[in-house]
């Protein structure tokens, strides 16, 4: 359920452009607040830059989203994806970038975005991320938080719940998926070079994805 926004064509009961902006802003805030924690997690299994990578990217994305004038939600998400691709680098740049770009493509120029449309866009994003990274659930990547969240979102919406309620449950699922990465042995990304030694550490990307879904539950 969208907050009331100033956009002329804000779709009440769906996801409006101001809603998307709020989501992006909130995610940027959470990433900034958790920046050091994300980097610390990455120091243990990777190269200690996930927090700074994503913080740099989300700052730029929030600014770009703010500057974009009259546009549909899909166009806004595309802009966010492009900005992330251009500013983050490393593994998470193309992954987060693809997520938003595919969401944008899924929504196209539609101005009325209801719950199912949003959920379909998120799944399109998930499919894109999986294709981009060639990872599967259990590889100890951000998919381990994103996949259960998208599955839960679909399931709860299918029960007839509101988007807001469904996102709340999706956020819980993302958190659980994030926590479940700890014992896993990484099979993708930089952490995989550690082999068995990657077990016992929570995945940084899954941790930031849980923030993304939490931000959605708080704003959409």
């Amino acid at each position: 359920m969208g907050r009331t926004g100033e956009h002329p064509r804000a779709a009440v009961g769906g996801v409006s452009v101001p809603d998307v902006r709020s989501w992006i802003d909130r995610f940027a805030e959470l990433v900034h607040a958790e920046r050091d924690r994300l980097t610390e997690l990455d120091a243990a299994v990777g190269d200690a830059d996930h927090g700074s990578n994503l913080d740099r990217g989300m700052k730029a994305a929030a600014a770009a989203a703010g500057e974009l004038g009259d546009a549909a939600p899909g166009e806004l998400l595309k802009k966010v994806g492009m900005t992330l691709v251009s500013t983050v680098g490393g593994a998470s740049g193309p992954l987060y970038g693809t997520l938003f770009l595919r969401m944008g493509a899924s929504l196209g120029e539609a101005t009325d975005v209801d719950g199912p449309a949003f959920a379909a866009a998120l799944r399109a994003g998930l499919v894109g991320v999986a294709a981009r990274g060639k990872a599967e659930v259990g590889d100890k990547t951000l998919l381990d938080a994103l996949t259960p969240a998208v599955d839960e979102l679909d399931a709860v919406l299918a029960e007839g719940a509101s988007l807001s309620e469904a996102l709340g449950r999706a956020s819980t699922a993302a958190d659980a998926g994030r926590d479940a990465t700890e014992p896993l042995v990484a099979r993708k990304g930089r952490a995989s070079y550690l082999g068995e030694r990657s077990a016992g550490h929570q995945d940084p990307g899954a941790t930031s994805v849980a923030l993304l879904v939490a931000a959605a539950a708080q704003t959409l």
């Binding site: 680098g89 593994a91 193309p94 693809t98 993708k188 990304g189 930089r190």
Partner: peptide, 11 residues
Amino acid sequence: NYTGDVMNFEM
């Protein structure tokens, strides 16, 4: 062949 390089070049 590093995950980040491969994906960025692919895009």
